[in-house]
Design a binder for these strands. Structure first.
Length: 573
RNA sequence: GCGCCCGUAGCUCAGCUGGAUAGAGCAUCGGCCUUCGAAGCCGGUGGUCGCAGGUUCGAAUCCUGCCGGGCGCGCCA
């Protein structure tokens, strides 16, 4: 870990225990970046309360006992009792040099097995904007968790089971099966046709209901048809995943059908242990603390009146599978905010059942909706839901026209690959750079802009750096040639060294927008440096080498950081 | 009706878990291309942090109550 805070921490801990006794050795010195210094320690203010001494006196006591180290250039008390700290340029150069190989990101000492449940589209349905956030956020989190050293198990909880499959299979049988395979290609139309027949044709609806029963029983012919539906869908999903550049593969498919064989025993076990009870003909579990409309306990229905199982049972079986078979200690559900109550009830029930016990825990990685400029649900002008494929194609074609305008002399195939990286990157970044808990407003012009906190701006910063090396035909000098002199070099160095802390913070908080904010800060710090500090035309060879190392380090952090978000970094654009 | 989430510049968003004068981008006004990519950089204008109380050295941040918006609340998943 290259973050200077890590180096500063033991010095302040020692000072704390020297000044106020060993019981304060674990006190958090509250080291933060500062606009008044390189770092500031805020602990004197809060300590003043417990010690009942004036804050500046506390700060002074700490400052007096701060061990001398070659890290600190100077430290002083400021304002009501902040301790401002400036680092030596020698230390920053050394820290950068040591961090160069792995960008300062060393693997965690406490690796875990983390299940990430994300994307989870429905079979026989078109992927639409509603699936976008789960897919993008989930994929970024997987990459970040792996980067800090966790074992990540991606689980694509496909909607591949349940009552809709009765009508879908019957619809498949309406024509001959081969023709059916053709029509599956237009999934929305196929689904809607089935739906329409189900609603208007009572004989068809009856056959559909029977078909569900046959499917549940494992009728061979029915299962064959079901498999056709699933295969056609997953093939289609894969083409979109490839286009989007997400890491989901067939091996990560773990749909609802996977848990089907275990549903009866889940219910039996819960019933046998008196955790679930019969209510209005259904079998329910009433997790403590959940109340409904009339203050009555809220049920989680694990077996319906008709004997069928709903998604609560599947979700419970999935928790059990993930902790007991996959040995996950952390389970992440990248699912929309509307599922909040359902998921907390499932988690509560799983805890009562003993399937979710420490150190294992489940977290709902909630996210808000994508809104149009009218602040309502993002839809086409005609009011229809937007196909994800259309959205992706539009992103690429919009980027394409910008690239051809800005850089017309590049070969067409290079232009296209840049357009893909920029378009898809812009789309993903627009999503990831917003606080995932909130709704956000979708805006093509803003996300594709080269100004502001956007993917194209970061990609541009990266491409500019790469072009320095091309133009200067420069090799990357040895990392220990860094010398920090100019204030812009120092600001850049401090930002670079913060990278590992930011990535770890994201692995913990599951907030990718913090990584976005950091990369934007880095790109602006680089731009400022680049304006002020000539690289290829540096006054001396040693300055040129030092600045080339800073350039290369920055380019690698940008590239790696974007990669963790699932975004490409073209060499030219 | 109850529960959860949200309300920050004209617009779109940050705000490091209670710290210094609340920050960016867009828009607007003004500077910078005979030197490494101007797809860029530097500066100005612009805020009663929804409202009202409370907690304390200190609140956009924590607590309470309102106002406004979204979502959820028994057999779809």
């Amino acid at each position: 870990m290259s973050d200077p805070v890590i180096a500063l921490l033991p010095l302040f801990r020692e000072s704390l225990s020297l000044a106020f006794g060993d019981e304060f050795a674990e006190t958090d010195p509250m080291l933060r970046t500062s606009k008044h210094a390189d770092f500031q320690a805020n602990c004197a203010l809060s300590l003043a309360k417990t010690l009942k001494r004036p804050p500046r006196e506390v700060a002074s006591a700490l400052l007096d006992r701060l061990p001398h180290a070659d890290i600190i250039e100077r430290a002083e008390i400021s304002g009501p009792g902040f301790i401002n700290v400036w680092l030596t340029r020698e230390y920053l150069a050394k820290a950068l040099s040591e961090a160069s190989a792995d960008l300062g990101l060393t693997p965690t000492e406490t690796p875990e097995t983390v299940v990430v449940d994300y994307s989870s589209p429905n079979v026989a349905k078109e992927l639409h904007v509603g699936n976008l956030r789960s897919t993008i956020i989930g994929d970024a989190l997987c990459r970040v968790l792996e980067a800090v050293g966790h074992k990540v198990l991606r689980q694509n909880h496909l909607g591949d089971w349940g009552t809709p499959f009765g009508m879908l299979i019957e619809n498949l049988l309406e024509g001959d099966v081969e023709a059916g395979e053709q029509s599956i290609k237009n999934l929305n139309a196929f689904y809607q046709a089935a739906r329409k027949k189900f609603d208007s044709d009572s004989a068809f609806a009856e056959r559909a209901r029977n078909r569900v029963v046959m499917l549940q029983r494992g009728d061979v012919e029915t299962l064959e048809l079901w498999k056709k539906l699933v295969l056609a869908s997953t093939r289609y999903f894969n083409t979109i995943y490839d286009l989007l550049g997400v890491t989901l593969r067939d091996e990560h498919l773990a749909g609802e059908s996977l848990y089907n064989p275990w549903l009866p025993q889940v219910v039996e076990e819960l019933t046998a242990r008196n955790l679930a009870v019969e209510s209005d003909g259904a079998i329910c579990i009433f997790p403590p603390g959940f109340l409904g409309r009339e203050q009555q306990p809220l049920p989680l229905i694990i077996r319906k009146q008709d004997g069928g199982y709903g998604y609560a049972t599947t979700d419970l079986a999935a928790v059990r599978y993930r902790t007991q078979s996959l040995h996950a200690t952390r389970i992440l559900y990248v699912v929309g905010a509307s599922q909040e109550q359902h998921l907390s009830m499932v988690f509560a029930a799983a805890k009562v059942a003993g399937w979710l016990v420490e150190p294992a825990r489940a977290e709902h990685v909630s996210f808000g909706a994508i809104l149009g400029s009218d602040k309502k649900m993002f839809r086409t002008r005609a009011g229809e839901t937007i196909r994800l494929l259309d959205l992706l194609n539009e992103a690429v074609s919009r980027a394409q026209s910008i690239v051809t305008e800005k850089n017309p002399n590049l070969p067409p195939e290079v232009q296209h690959s840049i357009a893909h990286a920029v378009g898809i990157g812009a789309l993903k970044y627009a999503d990831l750079s917003n606080d995932r808990g909130k709704d956000y407003v979708f805006d093509w012009d803003r996300m594709l802009s080269f100004d502001g906190n956007t993917a194209p701006y970061l990609q541009y910063a990266h491409a500019r750096i790469r072009s320095i090396f091309r133009k200067g035909e420069a090799e990357i000098p040895s990392a220990d040639s860094v010398r920090i002199v100019a204030p812009e070099e120092k600001a850049l160095a401090l930002t670079l060294l913060a990278y590992p802390t930011v990535v770890r913070d994201v692995a913990d908080s599951l907030d990718p927008h913090k990584l976005c904010g950091y990369l934007y800060e880095l790109a602006t710090a680089f731009s400022t440096f680049y304006e002020c500090c000539p690289v290829l035309k540096a006054p001396s060879q040693s300055e040129r080498d030092s600045r080339l190392v800073l350039c290369d380090f920055t380019a690698r952090v940008l590239e790696k950081g974007l990669m963790l978000l699932g975004i490409e970094s073209p060499e030219k654009m």
